[in-house]
Design a protein around this nucleic acid. Structure first.
Lengths: 259, 259
DNA sequence: CGGGGGATTGACGTAGCTCAACCCGAGTGG
DNA sequence: CCACTCGGGTTGAGCTACGTCAATCCCCCG
């Protein structure tokens, strides 16, 4: 104890704790591709031969953080599965602000299900981190689902899970004030991509106030105020583009029953 | 012309125009049941033999308007397909208010997809009108989907459509003021269950201000004010538990670009 | 004809948005 | 290695859309 003051970090540590996650644009071999697809929920349980066949219709694409993958209004041609990194799905609104609908991680899909019957994408997709995706045409994916019922069931499960999450969001937006929505969003993020970091759960992705605002239907300023309150109350720890949950129990209490 | 004044209806006609839709609790025969299932998107294209087999796992239930079908928190056991009438899916919130997630009509499903992995229902379901549903256990439905890939694809399409609708709602709640949300909701309702009624599109179901408020994340009072404005502007016509769209074009303009 | 539930309207309070100033940590180029 | 810059974050001071509370109205039913 009695460390030199220069070594002690302030009550709320404001320096970036980790973050600079860089996925080097790996180019995977066909074998690697097959392995990745086989490990994804979509094609789990396929035989090697089937897997090879399925994998044949996929191509690979790498994106740098921030790069646009497609824009709302573009012809909806592709179905993509994220292999590494994260993809941000945001819906532009007529007011200019964006609504952040999802951050898609490994083994999750985005893009066009033929089932949706969409002629064009409704959302912007961009690389939230450096990332690598496998993609195929909407038609080819449809054909795969018809051919491998297990894949169709897996897709159904994933879409159903998203529907459930969307309904949760609707409930929140309809019925709860901003602080509760922020709390709930932080908890969800911590569960999906939290990492233990000396006593707190660090949300292991770059996350700006703007992102959080777009996720909760609030403004940057309001989110900033809410986070300041949370920080003062010892619920979270936060800095430039990072947030850690410090007191999960109390935050969860707040998310469920309000301040 | 020059009708006796007693015969002329006021500018905004306030008497119930139609509404009292009563579905007499019909009890359908097994044959009838099979026909209905065969006509539904789920089991379209099955052979007669397959259809008979699928239909065997379904039972029938009739409810009177207002009757509770299941409550949030009940063990999630059933998957139901609406045959006639409408079912209201509402999520109770911790503040006591309800969020109206959907009004389910004929050939649509509600309840538990096994895929969701829910142990309990998350929503209340109640008969919005007198209605008739065919139901089966979540497990049996799951088995049917595995057995008939076409049914799985149809279910996927329906769930995907709901996801799209939910995302639309999230966009609205996040980014647009109440009047636009109400306008958009009225248009959607008019499209789904509108009926031509002397120059206007009557939304052909009982619809209270409270229902509309629960659909748009607003309060009864606000919705009432918005509707009064719409009525004064000649956009809609409304009365006790009914609404008709009088000027679709302008209402749609308002829904897209704001007042 | 009376009762009751839905609807309307008004007065008022406030959560959260807007606008604006300012701060600060992290790259960047000299 | 330092100074500059710039994007992200914070904080404050109004303003307003919408919620709350409350009174009144008016269909529709018994």
């Amino acid at each position: 104890m009695n460390e030199p003051p220069s070594q002690r970090r302030p009550a709320a540590r404001r320096r970036t704790p980790v973050e600079p996650v860089a996925v080097e644009p790996h180019r995977c071999t066909p074998t690697e591709q097959r392995r990745l697809l086989g490990a994804s929920p979509f094609f789990a349980g396929l035989s090697d031969a089937e897997l090879a066949q399925a994998a044949a219709s996929f191509r690979q694409a790498n994106y740098r953080a921030g790069e646009v993958i497609h824009r709302a209004g573009d012809p909806a041609a592709r179905l993509s599965i994220v292999v590494a990194g994260q993809v941000k799905i945001a819906r532009p609104t007529s007011g200019g602000q964006d609504v952040l609908l999802a951050i898609i991680g490994p083994d999750e899909h985005f893009g066009s299900l033929l089932e949706l019957g969409d002629a064009t994408y409704r959302d912007d997709a961009s690389a939230h981190t450096d990332c690598c995706v496998l993609w195929t045409s909407a038609e080819a994916f449809h054909a795969l689902l018809l051919r491998y019922p297990a894949a169709a069931m897996a897709t159904l499960a994933l879409v159903a899970a998203r529907l459930r999450a969307a309904q949760e969001t609707i409930e929140q937006l309809s019925a709860y004030p901003v602080d509760r929505r922020v709390a709930a969003t932080l908890l969800a993020l911590a569960d999906r991509m939290g990492r233990e970091e000396d006593g707190a759960i660090l949300i292991d992705t770059v996350l700006s106030r703007q992102d959080l605002a777009d996720m909760t239907g609030a403004t940057v300023e309001t989110v900033s105020r809410v986070l300041s309150d949370f920080r003062r109350a010892g619920l979270v720890d936060s800095g430039r583009r990072w947030i850690a949950v410090r007191d999960r129990a109390r935050l969860s209490e707040l998310a469920r029953r309000g301040a």
